[in-house]
Design a protein around this nucleic acid. Structure first.
Lengths: 93, 93
DNA sequence: TAAAAACATCGAAATATTTAAATAAATCTA
DNA sequence: TAGATTTATTTAAATATTTCGATGTTTTTA
């Protein structure tokens, strides 16, 4: 992973609402449509759309269009690469 | 680790200069005084001071006063906690 | 086809971040 | 002790982020 991508992912992770969105995946196993995010996050629809875009742009969420909904999947591979980048900060590997 | 601390660490990691500072620890094994940071990062002294403060406030760097220098040590334990928090996003642990 | 539903985009306001010049504080050294 | 060195703080400007209302687009459904 490049430093630029690491920076972008870190920025995507640096917001309480976006963290909440990512944590929602823990409970609901698979995908998650935008409307459901609206159910547990107290923000206007454009704001949620904005946050989801940040997460997608950082490649943390993979959007899948399904009719008029968009379902998001967590990109666990990117999470692994992100973790590996952090591990590389350590002196003794 | 609390979500608030995770948010703060993520924000600290979301800047190219701060990433560069953390990567410098890889090469120089142990500690790192502020002046040396100035050697490889092209920023004014107050800016470097500001970035180091962000990293210290996020608990990623541990400052140790040594005469008129301050040596910083990487806090690997916090890195581990941070990584554990990310792991918890995943559905199948 | 008209209305509804889901999501995106634009524009603007409020707030936060980044940066550096000027200055201050602490400590070392001659 | 005077001057030099290292780091912090203050202030201000430039830029970025967060948020929402209004509006647009796409797709479903009545």
């Amino acid at each position: 992973m490049e430093a630029k991508q690491f920076e972008k992912i870190s920025r995507a992770l640096s917001d309480a609402h976006r963290i909440e969105i990512l944590q929602a995946f823990k409970n609901r196993k698979e995908c998650l449509p935008c409307t459901e995010v609206h159910d547990f996050i107290d923000l206007a629809q454009p704001s949620i759309s904005h946050h989801l875009k940040q997460l997608v742009d950082a490649d943390l969420l993979l959007p899948e269009k399904e009719g008029r909904n968009i379902r998001y999947r967590l990109n666990e591979q990117v999470l692994d690469n992100y973790i590996r980048f952090i591990q590389s900060f350590k002196t003794n590997l």
